[in-house]
Simulated assay, not measured.
Amino acid sequence: MPETIAPGARPTRDDSGGRPPVVLGRPLRVLAWLSFLAEVIIIGTGGAVRLTGSGLGCSDWPLCTPESLVPIYEVQGIHGIIEFGNRLMTGVVGLLAIAVLLLTLKALGGRRSVVSALWFALGGIVAGAAFFAIAMLFVEEAFPFFTLGLILATITGAVHSLRITPQRRDLSLLAWLVLIGVVAQAFVGGITVLTGLNPFIVGFHYATSLILVCVTAAYLVRARQQGGQRVSVVPRWFAVLSHVTGLALAATIFFGVLTTGSGPHSGDANVIRDGFDATVLAHVHSWPGYILAALVVTLTVSAWMLRLPPRRWLIVLAIAIVVQIGVGIWQAREGLPEILVGIHMVLASLSAAAYTVTVLKLKRPVESGEDAVRSARA
Rank of each mutant, 00 (worst) to 15 (best):
S302N: 10
G196Y: 03
L362G: 04
A217D: 05
S262M: 08
G369W: 00
R10D: 11
E3Y: 09
M345L: 15
L152I: 15
A348V: 01
L336F: 14
I155N: 07
R364H: 09
A376P: 04
G91D: 07
P365T: 06
G80V: 03
I321H: 12
R13V: 12
I81T: 14
L150T: 05
L360F: 05
G109I: 02
I321R: 10
R10T: 15
F145R: 03
L69R: 12
C64T: 07
P11F: 00
F143T: 02
L28F: 05
G57K: 14
S68H: 05
L347D: 13
G80E: 01
R168I: 05
L317C: 12
L197D: 02
V240M: 08
T195A: 09
I253F: 03
T216K: 11
T90S: 11
A378Q: 13
E338K: 13
L336E: 11
H344P: 05
G246P: 02
A250F: 15
F255G: 02
R169I: 08
A153Q: 05
S54K: 11
W176M: 06
R112S: 03
L179C: 06
I253A: 01
S209I: 10
G196M: 05
S232P: 06
S16V: 09
L212A: 03
R29A: 06
M1K: 12
I315V: 15
V75Q: 15
V139H: 04
A251P: 03
V316E: 02
S286R: 14
L103T: 07
I151L: 14
I42N: 08
L179H: 07
L24W: 01
Q229N: 12
I72L: 04
V40P: 10
H160K: 07
R169C: 08
R19F: 00
F238V: 12
G261D: 08
M89T: 13
K363Y: 09
A32N: 11
N270D: 15
L108K: 10
Q76E: 15
T245A: 06
V221G: 01
L194G: 01
T165F: 03
L362F: 00
F255T: 04
T298W: 04
L299P: 01
P27L: 12
W33F: 14
L241Q: 12
G123W: 01
S116K: 02
V115D: 08
M345T: 12
S116Q: 10
H79R: 14
S232C: 07
G94N: 03
F131L: 05
E74D: 13
T52F: 10
G149P: 04
G57F: 13
A107Y: 00
L194H: 02
G228E: 01
W330K: 00
A303T: 00
T52M: 11
L336M: 13
V316W: 03
W176P: 04
T147N: 11
Q226R: 14
I329G: 13
G369D: 04
S68K: 04
F146Y: 08
V93Y: 09
L220G: 08
T192N: 01
A9Y: 13
I253D: 01
Q167W: 10
A153I: 07
F36Y: 07
H283K: 13
L162C: 12
T195G: 09
H243G: 03
R236V: 14
N198C: 08
R26S: 14
G275E: 06
R10V: 15
L317P: 11
R333W: 11
I98N: 08
R311K: 10
M305P: 04
A278Y: 13
G109L: 04
G57N: 14
A130G: 06
R168N: 04
R364Q: 13
V322F: 14
V23P: 05
G369M: 02
